[in-house]
């Protein structure tokens, strides 16, 4: 066998091995050491230039942290569910926080103008907060209880039922605490 044939065959085998490796992974299931631990604190500037927002100051409320980007298709997919959740929980002890992930502020603002949503939006230069949260890709959503502990992490687009289940169960904790 000439070396050229060997190279071709090895390439084919490597390719098949790569696909086989893919089979052993579940793209939506990634264990996070954060679940059950206090959420990494952050203080970030708002996308629209408002005063900075710190996670510390949101204690006592259910906090939904959603990492997103305007270039991300799955984010567009989940956006209507976020809008609905935001409208539903507006008057309650729930604070929704969007964190823009690897995107320009202009694009993010344009996206929000098009798709709506009036919850807090923060910019995360150099992805510091995203790294602290262990974000692999967008969208990822973290549900944080009133004591500042990460209760659940969701990878990929959220749905109405995920949002309401998580938020409702955490809201009970708010009730217990007061």
């Amino acid at each position: 066998m000439s070396w050229r044939r060997i190279v071709v065959l090895v390439a084919v085998l490597v390719f098949v091995a790569l696909l086989g490796f893919g089979l052993t992974r579940d793209p939506s299931l990634i264990a996070s050491p954060l679940v059950g631990a206090p959420a990494p604190d952050f203080r970030l500037e708002q996308l629209d230039g408002g005063p900075t927002v710190g996670l510390q100051n949101l204690r006592g409320q259910v906090v939904v942290v959603n990492f997103w980007a305007s270039w991300c298709l799955a984010c567009k997919e989940e956006h209507p569910a976020l809008v609905r959740a935001w409208q539903r929980y507006k008057g309650e002890h729930v604070r929704m926080v969007g964190i823009v992930y690897q995107d320009t502020p202009e694009n993010a603002r344009k996206y929000l103008k098009e798709h709506g949503g009036g919850w807090t939006q923060l910019v995360d230069p150099k992805s510091r907060v995203a790294i602290n949260f262990g974000v692999y890709g967008v969208p990822e959503t973290f549900f944080i209880g009133p004591a500042g502990v990460v209760a659940q992490k969701h990878i990929g687009p959220v749905t109405d039922s995920i949002l309401s289940t998580q938020i409702d169960s955490l809201l009970m904790e708010v009730g217990e605490g007061s």
Binding site: L19, G22, P27, W71, C72, V138
Partner: peptide, 17 residues
């Protein structure tokens, strides 16, 4: 995304841009 995970163990998503 598959190559990145196999080679460097990181999850990435390749978007429309």
């Amino acid at each position: 995304p598959l190559v990145a995970e196999a080679a460097w163990g990181v999850k990435v998503s390749v978007g429309a841009p």
